[in-house]
Computed example of a mutant assay.
Amino acid sequence: MNEVDQLGKLSVRNITTSLPFNKIDQAQIQLRVQDTKSINYVGLQLKTRFNVKQEGVLRVLTGCTMLPNGNLLIADYYGKNVLIEYNEDGKHIRDIPCSDSPFDLTVMDTERIAVTYANDVADDIEFLIIKNNTIEKKVNLNSICNGILCQDNKLFIVIEDGIVITDIAGKVLKQLIVDCDSCIGTTKDRINFTVKDDQTVHCISMTGEEILVRKEESLVHPSGITVDDHQNVFVVDRDSNSLIVIQHDGRSSITLLSETDGLVNPRSLHYNKDKKVFLLCDGNGCALYNLG
């Protein structure tokens, strides 16, 4: 370095080029299209199936979810006042005590879950800390609460008069006056629910505007609903013993599972986006499916 006078010469050149980004709206539309997928490419592969112990006169598995550690948490509405935890292989881990018979549940974060009881005796919603099985908070919405789902630090709860949206602390942010059944499914900008009286599946915006309605003649008593990464809607029907998928645009539907596949009174359904698996609970127990 002491003997070298110079290592090179530095120069700057200005080059004019054209980039195909003159229409920003088209670029945004292309991104949204990539977020959707035709149901013709949807397939389920059975991963595992296991029985759930019956602790009451009936076994009615009305709620299910997957914990961050991969374990499964199930609500038996006619069982004991507990949530039942299993691992992915179907091994019973523990029972988590509740104040009453749990109807539905959702994961809030790595430590907490929210539980509904679907009656006018217990508190409407409870936040449970699953590590030590303690009640962190009770939330009263002055209504019977059924299905519940947590997304983007908000809780979506089905009540008697529609859907309530709260923050993660249980403070009511908005109430949507809609006619819906007990189950609910959401994406980043949509809320999906069923109406059994007219055999329809509805999709609305987060502010309540109707996006689409799909009439499904095969639906007799829909009891569970969830949404995949491409906004395709999955619904289980407890009376027709079926699982159907409705395309994101509402134009078509396919029956994925039926009674011939072993479905008996399916009640609840959950899709885990991290693991790309479905958890389905029916009268016999639970099954995990890989989404193909």
Results as ranks from 00 to 15, higher is better:
E3V: 08
D5H: 10
D5A: 07
P20C: 01
E3D: 14
I39M: 00
T36H: 15
L7Y: 13
E3Q: 08
V12W: 13
L19I: 05
K47W: 01
S11F: 11
T17S: 09
L19N: 11
V4W: 03
P20K: 03
S18L: 05
I39H: 00
V4T: 12
N2G: 10
S18I: 03
L10R: 09
L46T: 03
N22G: 07
E3C: 04
E3W: 10
F21G: 08
S38C: 02
K23W: 11
K47N: 04
N22M: 07
D25R: 10
T36K: 12
E3R: 07
F21W: 09
L19D: 07
Q30A: 14
K9V: 09
K37W: 01
I15G: 01
Q6M: 10
V4L: 06
Q30K: 15
Q34P: 00
T48A: 08
N40D: 06
G43S: 08
Q34Y: 03
G8R: 03
L44A: 00
S38N: 03
V33N: 10
V33Q: 15
N2K: 12
T36C: 07
I29Q: 15
M1Y: 13
N14I: 08
L46E: 05
Q28T: 09
L44T: 00
D25P: 01
L10T: 13
K37M: 03
I39K: 00
R32G: 08
T48D: 05
Y41S: 03
L19R: 07
T48W: 01
I24W: 10
